[in-house]
């Protein structure tokens, strides 16, 4: 879809209507921080299924929140066929579905995970990482020896859609972040065909200091204002 200026400010429902069954979706966040809650809640409501979820972790599902928190809900709802993540221990459903053979789970070291996304977004064919050499993680992967040290060849990751969380946007889609909400969000903004940013506030061009903008607006397709959900309003 062709980008327009100003960037469209749309509802979360409208935003997730671009995500169709079977698509790959990147979701920003680390633990409960920096998740685009309003967007993933809408995606959970939409019932879109057969998704390939690419996220650092699968957020939460536990006794206190059996329905899940954030994109954890997508796993609980059975909307996800495959997950690529570095950690899924806080969402009991992810482990259960994997152990039952009902979910394809690719676990990747966190640094490798984000660097694969960076490669996907920045036109690189992959990179060589020392992380995981000699462990079960290495199995089935191509390795190379450079100057006597062994590395694993890691391949790029991209997605059809990225749902990210930022603090403020301007109407050109430029983004700034706050605190540890930043995490994977700026990288995911580079590595998907369609990027939707959930933000606290949208300001006029020129109001954000160009030196402080982390994500240039050319990467962002649409903006959604955060909702008033428990976590959306607190993070």
């Amino acid at each position: 879809m062709k980008k327009t200026i100003p960037r469209p400010v749309i509802s979360a429902e409208k935003a997730v209507s671009f995500i169709r069954d079977g698509m790959s979706v990147m979701v920003g966040g680390f633990n409960y921080g920096g998740i685009p809650y309003t967007l993933v809640d809408a995606l959970a409501e939409s019932g879109t299924k057969d998704l390939y979820l690419i996220a650092n972790d699968t957020a939460y599902a536990n006794d206190e929140h059996p329905e899940g928190i954030g994109h954890g809900k997508l796993v609980v709802n059975g909307q996800v066929r495959k997950v690529t993540a570095s950690h899924v221990g806080l969402n009991r459903e992810t482990g259960r579905l994997f152990n039952e053979g009902r979910l394809d789970l690719e676990l990747v070291p966190q640094g490798t995970f984000v660097e694969r996304i960076r490669c996907g977004g920045f036109g690189l064919g992959g990179f060589l990482s020392p992380t995981g050499v000699g462990t079960i993680y290495e199995e089935g992967k191509q390795t190379l020896e450079i100057s006597g040290k062994k590395y694993i060849l890691e391949l790029p990751l991209r997605a059809d859609v990225a749902l990210i969380r930022a603090y403020k946007a301007d109407t050109w889609g430029n983004l700034v972040y706050i605190g540890t909400n930043r995490n994977f969000n700026p990288l995911m903004a580079t590595a998907a065909d369609f990027v939707i940013a959930e933000v606290d506030e949208i300001v006029e061009p020129g109001e954000l200091d160009p030196d402080c903008i982390v994500t240039p607006g050319i990467l962002v397709d649409a903006l959604v204002l955060k909702g008033d959900g428990y976590y959306a309003s607190r993070t």
Partner: peptide
């Protein structure tokens, strides 16, 4: 049994 994942530990 448990599949927490490696998170950042391997790096």
């Amino acid at each position: 049994k448990l599949v927490p994942g490696m998170g950042g530990a391997m790096d």
